[in-house]
């Protein structure tokens, strides 16, 4: 269903269209909420609140962004305010982490390259790893914890782009960051998750 007709269906009160939408977007929105609040139950709560807000605001949604971008923005708002309420529980280290967000420097351990800048030992191919291992439950757990370990500003970018599958322009608007800044954060986030998978799959 196209964007416009989706919104029209909701405004007509088409319940099947609504159920289809919340089923499709639950997973992405839950991961998005968890980019801000680590607790699964709190994240479930945040997503539910966001949907209730969305329902109340359906008449005001102007369709300038995609529906998914719009609901993502609502989830982010709810999740951030929930995180602020719970911020007294934040540890000192997690507060320090904010500064790491835009630090440059290599994403691959420099010792993997020789003095000429070429690989000392080639990365192994993952082509032969069976699908049920590559996307198996344990691997996904590993990825989830790798993402939780990222600085928050990297985490929100990788979840919006690679889990919720929003495009770069939408994410730039939602987070208010430049395209270049977004690419830097995305690059560091993806590289960190790859590294964690490499260690796990080895």
């Amino acid at each position: 269903m196209g964007e416009g007709s989706e919104l029209d269906a909701l405004r007509r009160g088409d319940e099947a269209a609504f159920v289809d939408l919340i089923q499709r977007l639950h997973g992405p929105m839950l991961r998005l909420a968890m980019a801000y609040v680590a607790d699964h139950h709190v994240a479930e709560d945040v997503v539910q609140e966001a949907w209730l807000t969305a329902i109340r605001s359906l008449d005001r949604f102007e369709g300038r962004s995609s529906f998914k971008t719009w609901i993502s923005g609502i989830v982010i708002n709810h999740a951030r305010s929930r995180r602020r309420k719970e911020s007294r529980f934040l540890t000192f280290t997690s507060l320090l982490r904010g500064d790491e967000a835009d630090r440059r420097g290599p994403t691959v351990d420099p010792s993997r390259f020789g003095r000429d800048g070429a690989w000392r030992e080639l990365p192994t191919t993952w082509q032969n790893i069976p699908e049920d291992r590559l996307i198996g439950a344990e691997t996904l757990d590993r990825i989830r914890s790798a993402i939780q370990d990222l600085p928050p500003k990297h985490r929100e970018v990788i979840v919006l782009r690679d889990v919720a599958q929003l495009d770069a322009a939408a994410v730039g608007d939602l987070l208010g960051i430049s395209a270049e800044n977004q690419r830097v954060r995305l690059h560091r986030a993806r590289a960190a998750v790859r590294k964690s998978l490499e260690e796990y799959l080895a």
Binding site: H26, G27, P28, L30, R31, W126, I129, L134, I135, T139, L140, I143, R144, I147, I158, D162, V163, A164, Q165, R190, V193, R194, L197
Partner: peptide, 12 residues
């Protein structure tokens, strides 16, 4: 392949 696996986190 990392990106492919990451996208599966949405399957909940």
């Amino acid at each position: 392949l990392t990106l492919k696996a990451v996208s599966r986190l949405a399957d909940e």
